[in-house]
């Protein structure tokens, strides 16, 4: 199996899985336009084609510039230019690092370069790198923005982790609404489940979404986490619980598959 750390902005799975050895590092790049000002006629068509305001163009002052941080690498400007003034160069966005464990399992980590602010391409390439594995776990970035959507888009089943607080519920609702729209089944784990309010549990009942597991607020877990140790290393009880979680997810997935 493979675990893909799709949280390319701040990947941290490696902190907990230190044994694997680095097998390869693949650069992820994006095409960015380069404008040859000697060929440019300042017609402004590239600016017109750009959906992201990445071409800074003021025709009457003969000013044209590429704002690389706004560019999505779609190539529309090169298509628009009739004068051959636009070529493309590769800009480094980040890397996909593969770590191989003695068991044959792999940790595949997407990691953005400092200063890059769109992680989508890195997430895509990271997930692609896990193609040959039967079972793939995708560790999604938080929130409900494009990085989350790009990650869950490839998933058969999504496990959402929340907390029993109004803030947790608000985020959970947004995530569940998106997954409904995308028609991807999901289940929920409540972290620090013995604190806060019952709103999350009530919401899950009302929406008929399975509660897969509850993790209490526990000093021992926090200490292990702070040392970069997995919860399953604390005692065999947690190991059993996580094995059970895997079977529960499988069962839930089978149920929705039949439907």
């Amino acid at each position: 199996m493979a675990l893909v750390d799709c949280d390319a902005e701040a990947p941290n799975d490696r902190e907990f899985l230190k044994e694997g050895e680095l097998q390869s590092t693949q650069a992820v790049t994006q095409k960015v336009p380069v404008i040859d000002k000697s060929k440019c006629t300042y017609c402004g068509k590239c600016d017109e084609y750009c959906n992201f305001n990445a071409i800074f163009f003021i025709g009457k002052h003969s000013i044209i510039d590429v704002l690389e941080e706004l560019c999505h690498g779609c190539g529309a400007c090169s298509v628009a230019c009739e004068y051959g003034a636009i070529s493309e160069k590769d800009e480094l966005l980040g890397h996909v690092n593969r770590y191989r464990f003695s068991s044959g399992n792999e940790l595949i980590e997407g990691r953005m370069e400092v200063g890059v602010h769109i992680s989508i391409e890195i997430i895509k390439e990271s997930i692609k790198a896990a193609n040959k594995f039967d079972l793939v776990l995708l560790d999604s970035p938080p929130g409900t923005g494009c990085p989350f959507i790009q990650t869950v888009y490839r998933a058969d089943y999504v496990v959402l982790v929340t907390e029993p607080t109004p803030f947790g519920l608000s985020d959970l609702k947004q995530s569940i609404e998106i997954l409904k729209e995308m028609q991807i089944p999901c289940g929920v784990i409540i972290n620090r489940a013995d604190m806060g309010v019952d709103d999350v549990r009530n919401y899950l009942k009302q929406e008929n979404i399975p509660l897969l597991m509850s993790v209490p607020f526990d000093r021992e877990i926090a200490v292990a986490y702070s040392k970069g140790e997995l919860i399953t290393s604390i005692n065999s009880e947690w190991k059993t619980k996580f094995k059970q979680l895997y079977h529960t997810i499988k069962e839930e997935f089978q149920k929705v598959k039949i439907k």
């Binding site: 992201f52 305001n53 990445a54 800074f56 003021i58 009457k60 704002l67």
Partner: peptide
């Protein structure tokens, strides 16, 4: 004109006042 631009509203607004 840049008020509701999804991205790059700043440079777009600069274009406008320069024009």
């Amino acid at each position: 004109p840049a008020k509701d631009a999804p991205e790059g509203a700043g440079p777009e607004a600069v274009k406008f006042i320069a024009s």
